[in-house]
Amino acid sequence: MKTFYDVQQLLKKFGIIIYVGNRNADIELMEMEVKELYKLGLIEKEIFQRAILVLRQEKNKNELW
Rank of each mutant, 00 (worst) to 15 (best):
M1H: 07
M1W: 07
M1R: 05
M1K: 04
K2E: 11
T3C: 11
Y5F: 14
Y5M: 14
D6L: 11
D6T: 10
V7T: 09
V7W: 06
V7K: 06
Q8N: 12
Q8W: 05
Q8D: 13
Q8T: 08
Q8I: 13
Q8V: 13
Q9S: 13
L10F: 04
L11D: 09
L11E: 09
L11W: 10
L11S: 06
K12F: 14
K12G: 08
K12L: 15
K13I: 10
K13R: 15
K13Y: 14
K13D: 15
F14Y: 15
I17W: 08
I18Q: 08
I18P: 04
I18Y: 10
Y19V: 15
Y19T: 12
Y19D: 13
V20S: 11
V20G: 07
V20T: 15
V20W: 03
V20H: 11
G21H: 10
G21C: 12
G21E: 11
N22Y: 07
N22C: 02
N22W: 04
R23I: 12
R23V: 11
R23M: 08
R23S: 07
N24M: 14
N24W: 09
N24Q: 15
N24Y: 11
A25W: 06
A25L: 12
A25E: 13
D26C: 11
D26R: 10
D26L: 10
I27N: 03
I27W: 03
I27C: 05
I27A: 00
L29C: 05
L29N: 00
L29T: 01
M30K: 01
E31C: 03
M32I: 10
M32E: 11
E33L: 01
E33W: 04
V34R: 01
K35Q: 07
K35L: 02
E36S: 07
E36L: 08
E36A: 02
L37I: 08
L37S: 02
L37W: 02
L37A: 00
Y38F: 14
K39E: 13
K39M: 06
L40W: 02
G41H: 09
G41R: 06
L42H: 07
L42S: 09
I43H: 02
E44W: 08
E44I: 11
E44R: 14
K45V: 11
I47F: 01
F48G: 02
F48R: 03
F48D: 01
Q49W: 01
Q49L: 07
Q49Y: 06
Q49R: 07
R50E: 05
R50A: 00
R50S: 00
R50I: 05
R50V: 03
A51E: 02
A51K: 00
A51Y: 01
A51Q: 01
I52C: 03
I52L: 07
I52V: 14
L53T: 06
L53N: 06
V54D: 00
V54F: 03
V54N: 00
V54Y: 00
L55Y: 04
L55W: 09
R56L: 08
R56E: 15
R56W: 05
Q57F: 10
Q57A: 14
Q57Y: 09
Q57I: 14
E58M: 09
K59V: 03
K59C: 01
N60R: 12
N60F: 12
N60I: 13
K61P: 03
K61A: 09
N62G: 09
N62V: 11
N62P: 00
E63N: 12
E63V: 11
E63F: 12
E63R: 15
W65G: 03
